[in-house]
Nucleic acid binder design. Sequence first.
DNA 1: ATGCAGGCGCGCA
DNA 2: TGCGCGCCTGCA
Length: 286
Amino acid sequence: MKEQKLEFKSEVFNPKHIFECGQCFRWNLEKDGNYVGIVRKNVIKVQKTENKITIISFGEDDLPKLCEDYFDQQRDYQEIQKKLGNVDQYLKNSIAYGKGIRILKQDLWEVIISFLISANNNIPRIKGIIERISKAYGEKIQWNEKDYYCFPSPEELQKASIQQLRELGLGFRDKRVYEVTKMVVSGKINLEELKNNQNTNEVRKKLEELPGVGPKVADCILLFGMQRFEVFPVDVWVRRVMNELYLKQQEEKVKNEEIQELAKRKYKNLAGIAQQYLFYWKREIS
DNA sequence: ATGCAGGCGCGCA
DNA sequence: TGCGCGCCTGCA
């Protein structure tokens, strides 16, 4: 455990847009305007000034390596923004609005549990539940007189009974989280193997065998936990924005498959990133 | 204060 | 295969 500091310049790195575009649940805005989050077994503070990003960490990982991986720093987001901006004016506008979004390389296990909890739920509540799960079953890190809690490993989370999960406020999702945890710990599902399988449709099928994982949650896991950027998760906001921009139909009549086909046709293998810009833009202006 | 929020799973045609 | 509905809970 040690404190580290790292500074870098980046044209495509906006903390607010990265942490509030709906991809992650463990980052919080502090009073001083910085974001603080838990990544693996590290507390990370991110501050942005006019021309540089400063990261301060306290934890067990080497900070430059952690940042390069977690923030996916070697990926050329300039190029991505350029490509997507050329699709049409709608994308150009939403990119201008959410400039600096990056897809984080989050831990697959944490992503699976987080998006199980997201079903029929809202973001403040999802964040609260994940915080309480971490506090109850994850490792504690003390830094500057404050306590932070890591997201529990599968083995740690297995200590929770369905009843105990219910008491943490999961509601009907308690059984789903319990079952999926058991499947991971027992090896019935192998996350590494899943991640290494480059056939995205095959992986999606396997994910949907998990209790609580339907099309939407599976797509979020593929995009946020496995960097499958061609995947386009459709939730009510994305439905709404895609229908308003392109389809202009009676909203109940539009099928999710139709929206996904449209997204694939327009955004190709960057549909997932396009989804983030559109989702963020629509959420923030509504 | 009912309806809704980033769905899923079930039962029924 | 394709619907419609119920479900925990907190918040506007």
